[in-house]
């Protein structure tokens, strides 16, 4: 009898605990209902002065770089304030973004670098048609070869690729890893890389070394900057580091039709500069039906390179969160936002 009593007592308390849990769970400000995707930044509060009818909730992918966070936070502010669409931001790896768009658990990604996602484009946009291309973001990006600007003072010939033909020049870049050759450092393996082909086809005395991650590459740059040591690397625009460390792009041979053909054929004969990457936005094919207004807005939304850099600088240099920076910019540029909503 006593046992039964205590058992039911503990069941009751457990039940009470659960009731409290669910009761409180529903009022926590973080959206527990979408537990599969965690909010990246909940500090941006919702503007409740909405005039339009509320649209279905959407979630935007945030890939791990400042530009991506900036775009998504700007979009979130506009979506919530002007379109009454509750928006969740999901921090996620670039590659994992696509299956998310595919099954509709992510609604859009606002900054896709085409060079890294050719296969995804083929699979999901032209193949399954579960993801749609919703136009250019605005800024274009470019991958290239970079050296610290300070090196040009003593070695002006390093401004172009021909300067690297000289073994003595190349040797400036030698490290323990590259031995007698100069070291060419590549960072994140996810970026397109023709560097090995370029080195071989232009017959440069360089050795291709993979740092393995963007963090490793940036650390190497900061190290070189601090020590004043030479460094040759693959890098790109836009990137927050460009505003902190002075890097100069090495001029490679101009892009020609033959060169583009070599890239397509993938025959190992690539020997020119990288083409310009035009950043684009992609959305789940389900978004248009689910929330047409949001779809229209996201398709229209564009930022210029300068605008994106302006917001990114607030984050990278002024220590604001991406949400704060986006809010500041949106408040200061109502006309730009209005244009997107037309």
């Amino acid at each position: 009898m006593r046992n039964r009593f205590t058992r039911s007592a503990s069941v009751l308390t457990l039940g009470a605990l659960l009731v409290v849990a669910t009761a409180c769970g529903s009022d926590t400000k973080a959206p527990a209902s979408t537990g599969s995707v965690a909010p990246s930044d909940t500090s941006a509060t919702t503007d409740t002065s909405a005039t339009t009818e509320a649209g279905a909730d959407i979630s935007l992918a945030v890939n791990p770089w400042t530009g991506a966070a900036v775009n998504a936070n700007v979009a979130k502010i506009v979506l919530e304030a002007s379109l009454s669409t509750k928006t969740t931001l999901v921090d996620i790896d670039e590659k994992a973004t696509w299956p998310g768009l595919d099954d509709g658990s992510l609604d859009a990604v606002l900054e896709v670098w085409p060079s890294g996602h050719g296969a995804d484009f083929d699979t999901y946009i032209t193949g399954k048609k579960t993801v749609v291309d919703i136009g250019k973001l605005g800024p274009s990006a470019k991958i290239g070869w970079y050296i610290p600007t300070s090196m040009l003072a003593d070695h002006p010939d390093l401004a172009t690729w021909e300067g690297f033909k000289d073994p003595a020049n190349a040797k400036l870049f030698a490290t323990a890893e590259s031995g007698d050759l100069g070291q060419f450092l590549m960072g994140d393996p996810s970026y397109v890389s023709y560097d090995e082909q370029i080195i071989k086809n232009l017959d440069l005395p360089l050795k291709f070394v993979v740092a393995g991650s963007e963090a490793a590459l940036i650390t190497a740059v900061q190290q070189a900057e601090k020590d004043g040591t030479p460094l040759l690397l693959q890098f790109w625009q836009p990137h927050w580091l460009q505003s902190k460390v002075k890097l100069t792009e090495v001029k490679l041979p101009d892009v020609t039709d033959a060169c583009t053909a070599a890239a397509t054929a993938n025959d190992g004969s690539y020997a020119c500069d990288y083409p310009v990457d035009i950043l684009y936005k992609a959305a789940s094919a389900k978004l248009e039906a689910k929330n047409p207004k949001a779809f229209a807005f996201l398709s229209k939304m564009q930022l210029t390179t300068d605008q994106q850099n302006e917001i990114a600088a607030m984050v990278d240099s002024d220590g604001k969160t991406a949400a704060e920076a986006a809010q500041t910019w949106v408040d200061a540029n109502p006309d730009v936002v209005a244009e997107w909503l037309k």
Binding site: D93, K95, A119, D120, P189, S190, V209, G212, S213, A216
Partner: peptide, 20 residues
Amino acid sequence: AALIGGGGLGLETVYGLRKG
């Protein structure tokens, strides 16, 4: 290790995730 320049087999698996 491959994420900080180790190369080798580790880099192959990094390619697996980062390039799909």
